[in-house]
């Protein structure tokens, strides 16, 4: 932690557990917050086992409200579910294979979907992360077109910016997006290993980050979030960590993951006392001489393994979707006087 700054990010708890069906997560990729504390967690599963494709609805107390959506090409179904956003109690889900945005009501009933594949204005090629601004306009990371497109909530094209490349304002397979309280747009420019900041109209403002695994460097950043104070959180997906920066992009802290047993995980283990006993007698924090962070994360359960999305709720809690571990690690911000 950089001692010149007045806050620290602290681990709070873990939500969820692996499950191929119903309650639980299976390769979760994104989440967003709805009314009454509901959390909508989008699960992509994988092609070898598509039964886990669904949105799982829960709250921060681990109450479970059900699931909706499934794998397939029909309405209400997904092939490559990628991003989720909730606006006005409507749940929007992007599918980067079908090139569709699907809409559901808060109970999970399918409403409609829109999206035309292609590269022309208003068409989509691989919509990944999605984010609403305060005016109800939907910003879509049109990642295979290497641009951001803005639509109204009914799918009418408004504007767009970005192209393929490495210059400022250009992208290489961008993935995540957020909009801060001042209206600035942040995009995790995945294959350029950087994050770019734009004005609300899409004008380039600044960028930071380079390829690597040192502080302030990235290996395929997948998501970005900004809190009310303007501090920035980035899932450094390929380095299996979350990096925290202040609003001027000064490095503050690196989070490698500290997961504990979630309420759902505890329930499973309490129902399986033999496995609980064996687990308790195990050393789950082995001291391993492994440099490869992907490999290390495969061995050490508490660590992030391909953290894919970061979101901040109204209380300022930071939710990290830990894809390969099928859970959400929750952090909070402690401010020092």
């Amino acid at each position: 932690m950089n001692k010149t700054h007045n806050f620290q990010i602290i681990y709070e708890e873990t939500l969820g557990a692996a499950a191929m069906n119903n309650r639980g997560f299976y390769y979760p990729v994104d989440l967003d917050f709805g009314a009454k504390g509901k959390i909508y967690c989008l699960n992509r599963a994988h092609e070898g086992d598509t039964s886990g494709v669904r949105v799982c609805v829960l709250d921060s107390d681990s109450n479970y409200y059900g699931v909706f959506g499934s794998n397939g090409y029909n309405e209400g179904q997904f092939i490559y579910a990628t991003g989720i956003a909730v606006y006005d109690e409507i749940v929007y889900v992007s599918d980067e294979h079908l090139n569709k945005i699907s809409l559901f009501d808060s109970s999970g009933e399918f409403i409609k979907r829109w999206g035309i594949p292609g590269s022309k204005e208003g068409q989509l090629n691989g919509p990944s992360a999605i984010k609403f601004d305060l005016n109800g306009n939907l910003y879509i990371v049109d990642h295979l077109n290497n641009r951001i497109q803005v639509f109204d909530k009914d799918g009418k094209y408004i504007s767009g910016f970005g192209s393929y490349g490495t210059n400022p304002g250009q992208f290489n397979l961008p993935w995540g997006i957020t909009i801060d309280s001042l209206g600035f747009i942040y995009v995790s420019d995945w294959r350029n290993d950087r994050v770019q900041k734009f004005s609300h109209e899409g004008g380039f403002v600044s960028l930071f980050g380079s390829s690597g695994n040192k502080n302030g460097q990235f290996n395929r950043p997948s998501s970005v979030a900004v809190d009310l104070e303007g501090d920035i959180y980035i899932t450094d997906w390929g380095n299996h960590r979350v990096q925290v920066f202040d609003k001027n992009f000064n490095f503050i802290q690196s989070l490698r993951g500290e997961s504990t047993l979630s309420p759902w995980a505890k329930e499973f283990l309490e129902a399986n006392p033999d496995e609980m006993a064996a687990r308790k007698s195990s050393d789950l924090d082995l001291d391993l001489d492994i440099e490869d962070q992907h490999m290390l994360s495969s061995h050490i359960e508490k660590l992030f393994w391909a953290p894919i999305s970061v979101k901040i709720d109204k209380q300022g809690k930071i939710y990290v979707v830990d894809r390969n571990r099928h859970r959400i690690q929750v952090y909070s911000k402690k401010i020092f006087n």
Partner: peptide, 19 residues
């Protein structure tokens, strides 16, 4: 003990496979 039990149970719980 834990690893062989997980293998025998084909267990994904609580957080996926543990290498």
């Amino acid at each position: 003990e834990y690893m062989t039990m997980r293998a025998n149970n084909d267990s994904l719980f609580p957080y996926g496979r543990l290498n």
